[in-house]
Write a protein that binds this DNA or RNA. Sequence first.
DNA 1: TAAAAACCTAGTGAATTACTTGGTTATATA
DNA 2: TATATAACCAAGTAATTCACTAGGTTTTTA
Lengths: 166, 166
Amino acid sequence: MRLTTKGRYAVTAMLDLALHASDGPISLADISERQGISLSYLEQLFAKLRRNDLVRSVRGPGGGYQLNREQHAIDVAEVIDAVNESVDATGCGHNGGGHSGGCQGGNTCLTHHLWCDLSSQIHEFLSQISLADLMARQDVQAVAKRQDREQQTLIDTSLIEAKVSA
Amino acid sequence: MRLTTKGRYAVTAMLDLALHASDGPISLADISERQGISLSYLEQLFAKLRRNDLVRSVRGPGGGYQLNREQHAIDVAEVIDAVNESVDATGCGHNGGGHSGGCQGGNTCLTHHLWCDLSSQIHEFLSQISLADLMARQDVQAVAKRQDREQQTLIDTSLIEAKVSA
DNA sequence: TAAAAACCTAGTGAATTACTTGGTTATATA
DNA sequence: TATATAACCAAGTAATTCACTAGGTTTTTA
């Protein structure tokens, strides 16, 4: 279980999806705008989220992504694991790879079991927090509200600009 | 709180120190040999561990490093934090930097508070595990025993080689 | 005085991160 | 049926981090 900013990006994006679930499919362009994450990076993250059946996609105009399960049935741990998936076969596989055996020249290293334990305990902790739990937070709701207002302003502005240029 | 292999190296090295505390100061060369970590990398890690008062050093022949506190008074979280210390002022400072304020163009991002909470909970979890706790583990003791045997063999071998070349 | 060890600085290849560019395919709508 | 929208895909890239190498100096013991 690796904890880096990559996983945070993924959780942020999934939480954005969850918060706007009632609007139908959400385009990555929308998420990119609201959360300040580059569109192409989101595409890469969502390719992995899709491969792990956390989201489903709808192509074409009006399309986008939707959660593939209910909000309470998706937890933070699997979101992080989904984007951290890698074929990493180096070292002793503590870092997510299911690879076991021989970390230090054929022998288990001093902290092998130890790190496995810590890793699985942190994993368990994060797996008990669902997207629904995150949505219920006061601070999350407040920020979400502000972001929606900001995006609406952007849309209004571009409409005016469109009118002006017409 | 970042969880990467760097922190694991540090914990492994500190645990090695703790396990050999009764032998007086332990040289980084010894730890390097036993744990398979490069000497220079250990030097860099221990510079940070020393700056955080987790270890003290003795210079000159027979010198090395010692824990600066008793084994039960040093926890995993502070070891990891010590080597992850950085002036990272990018983003919103979730990743260890005490830097707060403005992650997304002046406003807090959606998962700011969220990540602070998760981070501090994981931190608290790891701060409840001391080096003494780690030393008490069966698997740690078993690996430590094997490593000591292996190192002794290396010493014996080099003694024989020294005799032969003399 | 020689050797051992901490201590310090700089550089480096590999991996990862976050992103850019430039496409193709599928599909709803005008 | 044409067009725009959006997912999907591949390649490349600057910046950062990781783990390590190289080449010192300083301190201290024997």
